[in-house]
Write a protein that binds this DNA or RNA. Structure first.
Lengths: 123, 123
DNA sequence: TTGCATTAGATGCGGATGCATGTAATGTAC
DNA sequence: GTACATTACATGCATCCGCATCTAATGCAA
């Protein structure tokens, strides 16, 4: 219980710190930006902000800003939803796909480094 | 690998959010504040800032500020180290011990809630 | 002793986050 | 249609964090 929590804390801190550095230096992405790109690529279609909100561990306001940053970097585009004009759909651009493709191996390498040393779960 | 990472992300987000709310509302403590108090109580002696830095997942600067907040709340006291006058030792106060004693069940309850539903580790 | 590198901790600063709230569109009851 | 509640997303604000840097104390060499 407490052991599990400490395991989660340790791995989260180590991976997050490493991701921030590696993704930032090599690809100009923060962990949240990568996560959002990754979710969109995974679904392979445009997504509503709300759908993304259910998948990434961010508040709605934080997500709104991540998308704003991605749009500013031309990695996604935002459009109003025709069916519900309150809604916004987020669409990945070609540059966004490419950036994600470049960054994916970096993320995998970090995760491998963080998670392979120890058994999958430390009690 | 990626699955482990997603597990860590999900549990971290859920537990952190819950801890922030519960510890904050019921005891006026943030997760970092509780963590520092917990480490000191666990060692049951005064600790150097640097020692704490090795145990909590915070940068030295963040830890310095957490300790400053705790001192402001009278839960710990800071003193210069006689042997090395650059150093600072942190000493928990009676109020700090009591606050920790009160908050511990809250933390345990949150962790139980977050970690009991699922198997200890989701592959 | 003097001079310089190193270490412990504090602090300025910019950035990311969550909460509360604002704005605009939609749904619903009358 | 009108009035009000609700929903989707954006934004003001305060907080917390990490990085870089600062200050002061220590260590060490000449």
């Amino acid at each position: 219980m407490v052991g599990t929590w400490h395991y989660v804390l340790a791995k989260h801190a180590k991976a997050m710190c490493s991701l921030e550095r590696e993704l930032g230096d090599k690809h100009g992405l923060g962990p949240s930006e990568f996560e959002v790109l990754d979710r969109i690529v995974h679904h392979d279609r445009e997504l509503r902000i709300q759908e993304l909100c259910d998948e990434v561990h961010l508040s709605q306001s934080a997500l709104s800003r991540v998308v704003a940053r991605l749009e500013k970097s031309q990695l996604v585009s935002r459009g109003v939803c025709a069916q519900d004009r309150r809604g916004v759909f987020v669409c990945i651009t070609d540059a966004g796909r490419q950036r994600h493709r470049e960054a994916l191996p970096t993320q995998r390498a970090v995760l491998a480094d963080v998670f392979t040393d120890a058994p999958a779960f430390a009690r």
